[in-house]
């Protein structure tokens, strides 16, 4: 049986990818950030997941202005890095798991969450920067990926409550998959940031700290938070944090916080990162 044993969240700032790709990780500006992900890389090397269900948002790369799906799942066998305007990132092709992804799609749609099924798409920094932070710069990514794209670029977005419930449906889907797979789910984006308009550059570290605390201990408090509160308190683009609730909904109520890292700022953005293991999995590992 497939076992979803842990959840990981991280910001997915494009400049982090550029710093890695251009060999700047040792520079004083970037070194503290990359150091913060060293324990994460060790954790992944030890836990060796077969598949990562990676929740992210497309940044107007795979989806043109013609169509913006609210929830979409990538069922292809591979996903090429997107050219976002300066050439594609020099990172490995992302390998999918079409059979597992199709199973999740079928289960989740019949569970009343209407995924759009994507058979061909590129993936932008929203997906590849988290991969780089988790795995560094290998020739091939060490696990397969089921991409789940969430609309956070064109309002209205799905509510936090809906995202959390989608996570619960994804977990039910994983639990009915018969192959033995070790699965992690990742929620990406956030934390505080606003990258447009005269209020750009907003960072609210108190908001971020409360969010991280509640993610582990009291997700119900986060699920009830309206979009307005994210956008007002932590910058318009911080609303990406609703994707972290999909991760949290897929985990047990009782989780153990394995690791947390917070850093201000990378480019315009407060970087937050957390690793949560289901307590039952932590005991087994």
């Amino acid at each position: 049986m497939a076992d979803l044993f842990a959840g990981v969240t991280t910001s997915h700032v494009p400049a982090i990818g550029a710093a890695l790709d251009n060999g700047k990780t040792a520079e004083p500006y970037w070194a503290p950030l990359f150091k913060g992900y060293e324990p994460t890389k060790a954790w992944f090397a030890k836990m060796k997941p077969d598949v990562a269900i990676l929740v992210y948002n497309d940044h107007a790369c795979a989806f043109s202005p013609d169509v913006v799906p609210t929830f979409a799942i990538g069922c292809a066998d591979e996903f090429l890095p997107a050219d976002e305007g300066w050439g594609a990132r020099p990172v490995p092709v992302v390998k999918g798991d079409p059979e597992f992804a199709s199973h999740i799609a079928q289960s989740v749609i019949l569970d009343e969450f209407d995924f759009t099924i994507i058979n061909n798409m590129t993936v932008d920094h929203g997906l590849t920067v988290p991969m780089s932070l988790m795995f560094g710069q290998p020739k091939e990514w060490p696990c397969r990926v089921v991409p789940i794209a969430v609309n956070v670029t064109q309002y209205p977005f799905p509510t936090g409550r809906r995202c959390y419930a989608l996570g619960q449906a994804i977990r039910r889907a994983v639990e009915t998959y018969e192959k033995d797979l070790r699965v992690v789910i990742m929620g990406t984006g956030g934390m505080s940031h606003q990258i447009h308009g005269p209020r750009a550059g907003l960072i609210n570290s108190d908001f971020d700290a409360r969010f991280l605390d509640n993610l582990t201990a009291d997700p119900a408090a986060l699920v009830a938070m309206p979009h307005l509160e994210y956008m007002r308190e932590a910058g318009a683009e911080s609303v990406e944090l609703i994707m972290w609730l999909i991760m949290r909904g897929a985990l047990d109520d009782a989780v153990e916080e394995i690791y947390r890292f917070y850093h201000v700022a990378a480019s315009n953005t407060a970087v937050g990162h957390i690793i949560l293991e289901n307590k039952r999995s932590a005991v087994r590992a």
């Binding site: 670029t153 209020r199 307005l228």
Partner: peptide, 13 residues
């Protein structure tokens, strides 16, 4: 409700 956030434009439908 988001029209009250200063210096911010929410890209809506």
């Amino acid at each position: 409700d988001y029209d009250d956030i200063p210096g911010t434009t929410v890209f809506d439908a």
